[in-house]
Design a protein around this nucleic acid. Structure first.
Lengths: 191, 191
DNA sequence: TCAAAAGTGTTCCTGATACACCCATGG
DNA sequence: CCATGGGTGTATCAGGAACACTTTTGA
C-alpha cells in the first residue's frame, strides 16, 4: 500500500476571551512530510506564520486508509498571541469546525492542559487583564462554574499576577482591577 | 526522499517489584507499517504476545533521517502481568537498556503516569501484595523518599485495596499485611 | 534481647469550599 | 436608587507532612 505522511499543525489564539483556530482553510494546516517533521514545521511557521517563540507540542499521530492509500498524520498544536498575528492572512475559526474530525478531542485536551499554564497565559495575555475574564475563560473551556472569590484568592496566592492599579472601563457593574502576568522562570499551574 | 513508517511497541511488566522491558531483541518491538497502525499493533500482540486486555497508549512519534531514508517511528507502550507472559519466549530487560535512545524519556514519563493508576496496578499486582512493596516501587520510579505512615494512610483512604487477613512470610523484621486491589470501575490515582 | 521492618495514632498546617457582606458603576 | 457585577473577609473541613510510639519477626 502506498504511504503518505502528513504533518498537521493547529494554531490557537485568543480574541475577546474566545479561543480561535488560526487557519487559511477550514481545517488544520497540512504539510506533506519529506523530511524531519520538527524541521518542516519550523520552516512552515517561519515562512507562513512569521512568529518567533512558537513552540508546538506533538499531540497525536493518526493513521487511516483513504483511496487505497495509507495516510499517517502527525499533529502538533501551539498558541500564538493575537497581536503577533497578521490577521489579514488568516481566518479565525471557532474550534467547533473540528467537531466532526478525529482531531477534535485531542485539541480539547491540549487546550485544557495548556490554558492552566501561566507561561501560555502570559503569551495570550501579555498586557492587562481582569480576573473575571480569566475565570470566564476557564468556566467555558472546562464547562464548570467557579466561585468568584475563591478563584481570585487562588490566582493571587500563586504570586504570578500583579495589580497595575488601573481599572477596567465600560463595564456593566463595578469596574474590575487590571492585572498583568509577571515574568516567571518556571511554569505554574493556575488551576 | 524515501519514507519508511515503523510502529514501535514497548511492553513493560513487573517481576519482584522491578519494572522490566519485555522484548526479543535488545530494544522495543519494531513493525514495518503498511496499514492502520492500531490494527497492526493488535495483530502483533495477538500473534506474538498472546495477551488479551493489552491496551497500548500512543506516546510519541519520532522522525529521523538514516541512510538517506526518512524514518517515522510511532511509539506505543503498555503493561502486561508477568504471569500472563510465556517467559521462555522473551527477554526481560532493565529499562536502562533504552537509556541512550530517544525513546527513554518518553518511556519514563509513561511509567510515572501509569504506575499511579489503580487499574494498571491491579494488572501488575492481581494477587496479594504488601503496602511497603508498593511504596518501594514508587520510591524507585520517582526517585523520592516517602513517609511509611503517610503512604499507608493515603493508600487506604482511596478505598481501593482490601486487607486479606494474611501476612507476608520470610521477612527481615515484622511481617507485613497482605492486601489485594479491589475491582474498580473508574480509575483512581494512588499517588 | 536487640536490630530491623511494620503498623497505629497525634499534631499541625495549608488549601479548598462555602458563604455574607460591601463597593462602584450605569441606567 | 437599584440592578449588575466586582472586591474583601471569615468559618469550616479535608488532605498532606512530620513525627513518637508500639508490635512482630529473625538472629
Amino acid at each position: 500500500m502506498q504511504i503518505e505522511v502528513i504533518s498537521l499543525i493547529g494554531i490557537f489564539t485568543m480574541v475577546n476571551n474566545q479561543i480561535k483556530l488560526v487557519t487559511t482553510t477550514d481545517n488544520l494546516f497540512c504539510i506533506k512530510v519529506d523530511n524531519i517533521i520538527e524541521k518542516l514545521n519550523e520552516e512552515f511557521i517561519n515562512k507562513n506564520i512569521k512568529i518567533k517563540k512558537m513552540d508546538l507540542s506533538q499531540c497525536y499521530t493518526f493513521s487511516e486508509v483513504k483511496n487505497n492509500k495509507l495516510i499517517i498524520s502527525v499533529m502538533h498544536l501551539g498558541f500564538v498571541n493575537y497581536n503577533d498575528l497578521d490577521v489579514n492572512n488568516f481566518k479565525l475559526l471557532d474550534i467547533s469546525v473540528l467537531k466532526d474530525t478525529v482531531f477534535y478531542s485531542k485539541c480539547i485536551d491540549y487546550l485544557k492542559n495548556r490554558l492552566v499554564s501561566c507561561v501560555t497565559m502570559k503569551r495570550l495575555y501579555p498586557n492587562e487583564f481582569t480576573i473575571p475574564e480569566i475565570q470566564k475563560l476557564y468556566e467555558n473551556v472546562f464547562n464548570i462554574k467557579i466561585d468568584r472569590r475563591n478563584f481570585r484568592k487562588r490566582l493571587i496566592r500563586q504570586n504570578i499576577i500583579e495589580d497595575t492599579g488601573k481599572m477596567s472601563l465600560y463595564t456593566n457593574g463595578r469596574p474590575a482591577k487590571l492585572y498583568i502576568f509577571k515574568d516567571v522562570n518556571q511554569d505554574v499551574s493556575l488551576f
